[in-house]
Design a protein around this nucleic acid. Structure first.
Lengths: 179, 179
DNA sequence: GTCTATAGGGGGATAGAC
DNA sequence: GTCTATCCCCCTATAGAC
């Protein structure tokens, strides 16, 4: 599942195969099918695990008790680390791009994952604005969608234009919020 | 080429085949190969044409003579129309997601396309701030990267969460700039 | 649980007739 | 310029031995 997750973030769901995983693990193709009968089930399991991990993180006091500004920095750091890790992109962004050729169950998981990311980010933004540390107009939900979409897009853009573009975007978000 | 362009925006470069195009045109697979010997050449031609089209647009007085605010609205409208057209995503965004499995020539084209979009947007933002109609901190280049990455990401996000999310993002960008 | 072997499909690409 | 026919590769998935 670690390998599958990495491969989705590096090559996309349609871009990885049982053979890739089997080769890396030095087992045969059929061995993977024993644990995950279909690729669809493997894909679902990967996204579910990713969602569970995010929920564990945000419910842990180490994140929960952070200030709004620190919470945002923590969220940004997820994407910075993703970029640093072999130029991966956000799992949600990768799946959304391939959405039209995804099995129904993966679409549902993708939708759920994206919603959960948005929901948390929206709450953090609202908390920060209420506390007077963030400044932005409009709805927190819209600002959350703007920031999340930008982080997803910036990871992709960095593949074509380099990591510095990604850092520029993160810096700009902070400048906008603290203006 | 129209079909190929649409297919890249709907299913990605790896997600479309000669058979898709041939079937739609009611010709055989081999007929396409006569005009575009390899898929790589077809892909390159599609991106080049897209780049040329954008250059024609921005050098036309109908865009060149717009006010900064109208220029931005025009740019946003490109993405709004893309979303409305079968839920397509930005060509650049689609290719960036598949960047790791793209032939070298397509990577170069993708990089060039993204740079050109960024360059134009940066100039429009700078013009607007200098004229006092846009308000933002930091470098125009960084703000341009933020907006472009967000538009790309929002088109993808809209596939999972619906068109309204995309419109929220566009509205929020305007609110942020005119704050 | 992992293996060998294989089925069955789709993909890109080419040769040669018309 | 388009056709038929074909090649070869990679993919997901399964059957049955071990």
């Amino acid at each position: 599942m670690d390998l599958a997750e990495s491969l989705v973030q590096e090559k996309g769901y349609n871009g990885f195969s049982y053979a890739h995983i089997a080769g890396e693990l030095k087992v045969k193709n059929a061995a993977i099918h024993y644990h995950f009968p279909t690729k669809e089930e493997l894909g679902c399991a990967v996204i579910k695990r990713y969602r569970d991990r995010f929920q564990l993180w945000i419910n842990n006091s180490r994140v929960k008790d952070l200030s709004p500004e620190e919470k945002l920095d923590w969220f940004f750091s997820i994407y910075t680390n993703t970029r640093a890790d072999n130029g991966k992109v956000c799992l949600a962004g990768s799946l959304e791009t391939e959405f039209n050729s995804l099995p129904a169950s993966l679409r549902q998981e993708t939708e759920a994952l994206t919603s959960e990311l948005l929901t948390w980010l929206e709450a953090a933004l609202k908390e920060g604005r209420d506390a007077g540390v963030f400044r932005f107009g409009g709805e927190p939900a819209s600002k959350a969608a703007l920031i999340l979409s930008s982080l997803q897009g910036a990871l992709q853009m960095a593949r074509a234009l380099g990591t510095s573009k990604f850092h520029d975007v993160v810096k700009q978000h902070k400048a906008d919020l603290l203006a």
